[in-house]
Computed example of a mutant assay.
Amino acid sequence: MKSCRSQILFFIGCLVGLFTVTNSNSVSADTSFFGKISLSPSEAVKAVTGYTGGSYSLSTISSRDRQKNLCIGFADPKPDHILVLEKDFPKLNIKVNSNGYDTTLLIVGPDDKTVRCGDDTGESKDASINGNDWKAGTYRIWVGSFKAGVRRNYKLSLQE
């Protein structure tokens, strides 16, 4: 009886430990897989690299963006990039180049309410967001793939 009780307490302890580890992965505005990007209006273009992957549905973060576009794709719960806009941008174009693989974008603004989502760009399966009225602040960016668990290298370009 005593060893059974010890095993049950050990099992409960493991569950509590697992729960703590799982919750410590919650999304923070200060952490990302591929780092922080700072952008000011004086910079014409900036580009960073990364790779897609994960099986976390981006529609869990938001099902639609501020223009009622669907938010789709799969990534990791942690954002891929943190974008810091040092000033307001009247216009900003963010584009994924993965050599034509099917990518998606989800960007959450500084107020956690402004969401922008992107999918195919014209003939290309790569995602982009070409939007107006970007307020200064910190944005979380997820670059996803259309199918869960697919890993594709990409270049993310930002241009005013």
Rank of each mutant, 00 (worst) to 15 (best):
residue 126 D to Y: 00
residue 24 S to A: 08
residue 116 R to C: 05
residue 9 L to P: 03
residue 41 P to G: 12
residue 128 S to I: 03
residue 71 C to G: 06
residue 27 V to T: 14
residue 117 C to S: 08
residue 146 F to W: 11
residue 95 K to A: 12
residue 139 Y to T: 05
residue 77 P to I: 14
residue 70 L to Q: 09
residue 73 G to V: 01
residue 46 K to T: 14
residue 23 N to D: 15
residue 41 P to R: 09
residue 28 S to W: 00
residue 59 S to N: 08
residue 131 G to N: 05
residue 90 P to K: 15
residue 143 V to Y: 01
residue 8 I to D: 09
residue 25 N to V: 09
residue 30 D to F: 12
residue 132 N to M: 11
residue 116 R to K: 14
residue 60 T to A: 13
residue 114 T to D: 07
residue 101 Y to E: 11
residue 51 Y to G: 10
residue 89 F to C: 10
residue 60 T to S: 12
residue 116 R to A: 09
residue 30 D to G: 14
residue 109 G to D: 04
residue 5 R to M: 10
residue 102 D to A: 07
residue 65 D to Y: 06
residue 11 F to C: 13
residue 67 Q to L: 10
residue 89 F to D: 06
residue 90 P to G: 14
residue 71 C to I: 01
residue 131 G to R: 07
residue 102 D to G: 04
residue 25 N to G: 14
residue 33 F to R: 08
residue 18 L to C: 13
residue 146 F to Q: 11
residue 32 S to R: 00
residue 50 G to P: 00
residue 92 L to Q: 07
residue 117 C to I: 07
residue 125 K to S: 12
residue 89 F to N: 14
residue 107 I to M: 05
residue 21 V to K: 07
residue 132 N to T: 15
residue 10 F to D: 13
residue 86 E to R: 10
residue 17 G to S: 14
residue 125 K to G: 06
residue 25 N to T: 12
residue 44 A to T: 15
residue 144 G to C: 04
residue 133 D to A: 10
residue 49 T to A: 10
residue 52 T to R: 02
residue 68 K to C: 07
residue 112 D to N: 15
residue 100 G to I: 04
residue 75 A to E: 07
residue 87 K to C: 02
residue 4 C to Q: 15
residue 28 S to R: 08
residue 28 S to E: 04
residue 80 D to H: 07
residue 83 L to E: 08
residue 115 V to H: 10
residue 32 S to N: 07
residue 95 K to F: 02
residue 139 Y to S: 03
residue 36 K to I: 03
residue 88 D to A: 09
residue 41 P to K: 08
residue 136 A to M: 09
residue 52 T to F: 03
residue 42 S to C: 05
residue 111 D to R: 10
residue 55 S to P: 12
residue 93 N to E: 12
residue 13 G to V: 02
residue 133 D to K: 11
residue 142 W to E: 03
residue 41 P to V: 07
residue 54 G to S: 12
residue 53 G to N: 06
residue 116 R to T: 04
residue 108 V to N: 10
residue 118 G to V: 06
residue 46 K to C: 08
residue 23 N to S: 15
residue 71 C to K: 02
residue 56 Y to D: 13
residue 97 N to K: 04
residue 117 C to E: 05
residue 18 L to A: 15
residue 31 T to A: 00
residue 142 W to N: 05
residue 39 L to M: 11
residue 133 D to Q: 12
